[in-house]
Design a protein around this nucleic acid. Structure first.
Length: 502
RNA sequence: GCCAAGGUGGCAGAGUCCGGCCGAACGCAGCUGCCUGCAGAGCAGCCCACCGCCGGUUCAAAUCCGGCCCUUGGCUCCA
């Protein structure tokens, strides 16, 4: 059973074969850092992270590069707003720092490199020169455009006919372009004042944008790089001419990824990327979640509110390549699933550590459920990273644990299958880690302290219960619950669970 | 208008590539029983699906073919 992925380029699900059987070169189209990252970005990040983790689980050495676009008129449009910064670079830096913090809070594996466009202008200029030399690009009034008619396969990713694309363009929009669909590789002069105005938030006013935006010298005069060329330049710099996997949001297929293919393959004569994987978008009511529509929930707020594990359970609740509904209900359901996993894990740990766990007891149902779940998990992940099915497999381990622990408790002998439980815990932790879920509780001083305080309250409550003063006991339980602390009375006394994500 | 993806139970969401094990997974919600001082959690079981519509192929279709309707995304910055 090998990994299969759905390739946008062919529209087919294909066996995954990297160029080097031991390495995977993976490039992910990162953010333009002009707004705080929202859950839509988090969804893509988490899915790329899960791909990364699964590929490593399969034994590949993953070289993962993810860019930051720090040159863009949208960034210039934020200059002077709040405390973001006084020029394009400062604003970009502010958002990059926030973005990296968000990524850490989501428990993402760090990429090998997070290249920035501003550091790669020389490579961009070289690439544009190559395209001009090879006849794929032309200079016009100090700007350089890619001639889409010169690249025969233009449209192959988004499956469009050039004629059709051409008819979309405004014919007299820019007389300096040869064809309406030609796109800028290099833009003459400073930042486009109108474009900046268009992206500026209401009520923000500042002087001339030209002074806030950077420009670079080039063979065609002073100017700024175009939007699409950066990814080609950066991926080639860090990963070479042919990538194994290129991942990005579905909304980038055209024109961004189409243009990346055209400019890269025209320049090198090599295939730019063998597998194109696209993450689908969040749907809120009847529209997508997006920065420009303003209907988003920031990553920072979401992590604060639900915690990393619940969020990751939610974000992997559907396949990366199918749309997902965002609503309070769907998040609550993810929380239920995570809670179920966490409770089962905890109950297994308690059971295996108890004196009732015997190495000579064998529960075949438990053991086979765990090994079946491992197989199901593997099959699901190999089937185009089916994270939802993978979650199902994890949940089935939880059910098996609960059944085993429950039936042992009912049984007069009350013995647990030590090895079986051990395997179940190991499977939960190992497979959970592939989804970036962590069962390791908080061990900081504050959590310890909170735990001690809860124990104290529960001791008091126990005494009330012994005196059959249930009213007071229930009050205490309700008060703890109001603080997010879940109390459960069991035969061996009360147990509690602190709020997750704390 | 053109390109792409999709329409499966009350919700959410797998399964569709390789037709039969799908009388449709997993979870949530609802119901019953067990457990419990009560609650929660847990377990066992139940309930809810003519798989968008129409037609075709087949011994057999959610799954293949044709037509239609609808939704979403892209064609402008966007994960």
């Amino acid at each position: 059973m090998t990994l299969h992925v759905t390739n946008t380029l062919t529209g087919e699900t294909e066996p995954f074969e990297p160029q080097d059987p031991e390495n995977v070169l993976l490039y992910y189209c990162g953010l333009t850092v002009s707004d705080p990252p929202h859950l839509g970005h988090a969804r893509s990040w988490v899915h790329v992270d899960v791909m990364h983790r699964w590929l490593e689980h399969l034994g590949y050495d993953v070289r993962h590069v993810e860019n930051f676009t720090d040159i863009n008129e949208k960034i210039v449009a934020r200059v002077g707003e709040d405390d973001l910064g006084e020029d394009e670079q400062e604003v970009a830096e502010t958002y990059i720092e926030r973005t990296l913090a968000d990524m850490r809070s989501l428990n993402l594996h760090r990429a090998e490199v997070y290249p920035r466009v501003s550091e790669h202008v020389p490579e961009i200029i070289d690439l544009v020169e190559t395209l001009v030399d090879r006849g794929y690009a032309y200079e016009s009034n100090g700007s350089v455009y890619f001639d889409v008619t010169s690249f025969e396969e233009y449209g192959k990713l988004s499956n469009q006919e050039l004629e059709e694309i051409e008819s979309q363009g405004d014919p007299d929009e820019r007389s300096e372009k040869r064809n309406p669909a030609d796109f800028a590789l290099w833009k003459a002069g400073g930042v486009d004042e109108n474009a900046v105005l268009e992206h500026r938030h209401d009520g923000v006013d500042l002087g001339c944008a030209h002074t806030k935006a950077e420009t670079w010298d080039s063979p065609w005069g002073e100017g700024r790089p175009g939007w699409h060329i950066e990814c080609s330049a950066m991926s080639m710099t860090h990963l070479g001419e042919t990538l194994d996997v290129h991942v990005g949001g579905r909304d980038l297929v055209f024109p961004h990824h189409e243009n990346e293919i055209a400019q890269s393959e025209a320049a090198t004569g090599q295939v730019f990327a063998n597998y194109w994987l696209h993450c689908e978008l969040f749907q809120m009511d009847d529209e997508k979640m997006s920065s420009s529509l303003g209907n988003f929930v920031t990553v920072e707020d979401a992590v604060e509110r639900w915690g990393t594990n619940v969020l990751r359970t939610f974000l992997t609740a559907g396949s990366y390549n199918s749309k997902q509904l965002y609503s309070d209900e769907t998040i609550d359901e993810a929380e239920e699933r995570w809670d179920r996993l966490e409770r089962a894990h905890r109950s297994a740990v308690e059971a295996v550590d108890s004196p009732d766990a015997r190495t000579k007891v064998e529960d075949d149902d438990l053991r086979s459920a765990v090994s079946d779940a491992r197989e199901e998990f593997t099959a699901a992940m190999n089937d185009d990273f089916n994270t939802r099915e993978a979650q199902s497999a994890l949940l089935s381990i939880a059910t098996a644990i609960n059944r085993h622990v429950g039936s042992a408790d009912d049984d007069s002998e009350g013995e647990y299958d030590y090895r079986g439980l051990h395997r179940a815990i190991e499977a939960l932790e190992e497979l959970g880690d592939v989804l970036g879920l962590s069962f390791v509780g908080e061990t900081t001083g504050t959590a310890d302290l909170a735990g001690d305080v809860v124990e104290l309250v529960l001791d008091v409550r126990d005494r009330e219960r012994e005196d059959e003063n249930y009213e007071r006991a229930d009050e205490l339980r309700d008060e703890l619950e109001a603080l997010g602390i879940e109390v459960q009375d069991t035969d061996e006394g009360a147990t509690y669970r602190l709020p997750s994500g704390e």
